[in-house]
Nucleic acid binder design. Structure first.
Length: 427
RNA sequence: GCGGCUAUAGUUCAGUGGCAGAACACCGGACUGUGGCUCCGGGUGUCGUGGGUUCAAAUCCCACUAGCCGCCCCA
């Protein structure tokens, strides 16, 4: 029989690595809560149209990387529906914002999410087909201040604090503005116009990009193409006064609070819905996947999805990559040991041992329970690997209520009244 | 989706046509109420999968699968 395996691009997360995941997620919840964000959990699959309309039909994500299937009709009256495992979470959040009328209160909504996303890409280190993202969105009616550059700066400052609090050093914040929802199409049109002449002299990838996604031409790394790219129209020259002022205000706020950044006029994001501020936090040592997180403003997204005007800004952080970065930067942690290993001496002591374990666990201690069928030597060997101390529970101890407790590191063995054991073991 | 490298024990790896190996880990014993250190014993394996060549294949050939690296793109 063929052995079943986790499907390509998916994997099992196991202890002790999952402790690190929990720590990162707990830190995100703690930090984001200080900024008054609340958690949202959207469905893991949505109507395919949601992603086609928000992320963009022409993007690689939608055109070739989605897990899409036709949900069969269960009755004559029911239509089949094209469903897709979410490739990112902003679209789902904005869909919920519209559907649940979250803007009606007239306040900003500040929502974060933690969950798996799915893209059918070629797997690589730090890139999986089921990958995890932590993200947050600030969205609301313009009257609530959702367009304010202060929101952009606040989100960026929050991310800097989050990475700092995790102990990640060496990150770089890269910023750009891709213009308002009217600037952006105008700039893309200008770019297309300029590329009509220039594209044929460029690399094959750029010739393709010129057709499908002209903004990505700016990202090209082929040396021969650089002079041509330098001569192309610049985004900065196509920003209207409001967008220029917005970007300047974001930078000023970052300067004021001391968050360092660099501006990269060529930073463009792949998703269609981005407007004005776009950003990335990058980190060395991630190979080709050097972006830890990315995000930006999406002032027109709600309207693209048929909702009210609801400008927003958000980001998505690749948890898989963040974990890699943390693992690379920290030395191997000491094994996480239980407080005690209980060794019943003889199978008659099994039930009393479970009772003792119950008492100690209710005291909040982390207890590993052995088995009376083990020879004592084996109990010591196992206990030494799993716990800081071993508690012997034989006939004597059971009768007298005086337990034998030995600390492995110190090699010290003492007799402790049962009532005092929890206090004795507590670190 | 494209190009390259790789796949042998739980792990890291050696083995390039002739009995499947090392280190660490693991299991048993020396030691029936005492771990670590020591000593003795044990290989725990569909050599990624399926074909082919050969008297003989872990080794050579083909296909497939998976991982890694780069590209595309992206978190």
């Amino acid at each position: 029989m063929t052995l079943l395996k986790a499907v390509r691009g998916t994997r099992d997360l196991l202890p002790p690595e999952t402790e690190l995941w929990n720590r990162v997620e707990a830190t995100a919840r703690r930090v984001f809560t200080r900024y008054n964000f609340g958690e949202i959990r959207t469905p893991i699959f949505e109507d395919t149209q949601l992603f086609a309309r928000s992320v963009g039909e022409e993007t690689d994500i939608v055109s070739k990387e989605m897990y899409t299937w036709e949900d069969r009709a269960r009755a004559q009256s029911e239509k089949s529906q094209s469903l897709t495992l979410r490739p990112e979470n902003t679209a789902g959040v904005v869909r919920a914002y519209i559907e649940r009328k979250l803007g009606e209160a007239g306040l900003l909504r500040k929502l974060f999410y933690i969950g798996p996303q799915f893209r059918r890409e070629r797997p690589q280190k730090g890139r999986y087909r089921q990958f995890w993202q932590i993200g947050a969105e600030v969205i609301g009616p313009p009257s609530a201040g959702s367009e304010s550059p202060l929101r952009d700066a606040e989100v960026l400052e929050m991310l800097a604090s989050f990475l700092d609090e995790l102990g990640i050093t060496g990150w770089t914040l890269v910023l750009n503005s891709v213009g308002s929802s009217t600037d952006r199409p105008r700039y893309i049109a200008a770019l297309r116009e300029a590329l009509k002449d220039k594209a044929p002299q460029m690399c094959a990838d750029c010739q393709r990009r010129a057709e499908t996604n002209p903004l990505r031409v700016l990202d090209c790394k082929v040396p021969e193409d650089q002079p041509i790219i330098e001569a192309l129209p610049r985004i900065a020259d196509h920003l209207d006064e409001d967008s220029k002022a917005h970007f300047a205000a974001v930078l000023a706020a970052l300067d004021a609070c001391g968050v360092p950044y660099t501006i990269n006029p060529r930073l463009v994001r792949g998703l269609d819905y981005y407007t004005r501020t776009t950003f990335e936090f990058t980190h060395g040592g991630l190979g080709a996947q050097n972006a830890l997180l990315g995000g930006g403003r999406y002032d027109g997204l709600s309207e693209m999805l048929g909702g009210p005007r609801a400008p927003g800004i958000g980001f998505a952080l690749g948890l898989d990559r963040l974990i890699l970065t943390l693992q690379a930067s920290q030395s191997d942690a000491a094994p996480n040991l239980a407080d005690a290993f209980i060794a019943p001496l003889g199978e008659a002591m099994n039930a009393p041992a479970l009772t003792l374990a119950r008492e100690l666990r209710r005291e909040g201690l982390r207890i590993e329970l052995g088995d009376g069928a083990f020879r004592l030597k084996k109990s010591f060997e196992i206990g030494n690997k799993l716990a800081r101390s071993i508690i012997l529970l034989g006939e004597d101890e059971h009768r007298s209520g005086i337990l034998t407790v030995k600390n492995f590191a110190a090699g010290e063995q003492v007799r402790v009244p049962r009532a005092d054991v929890a206090r004795h073991l507590r670190p």
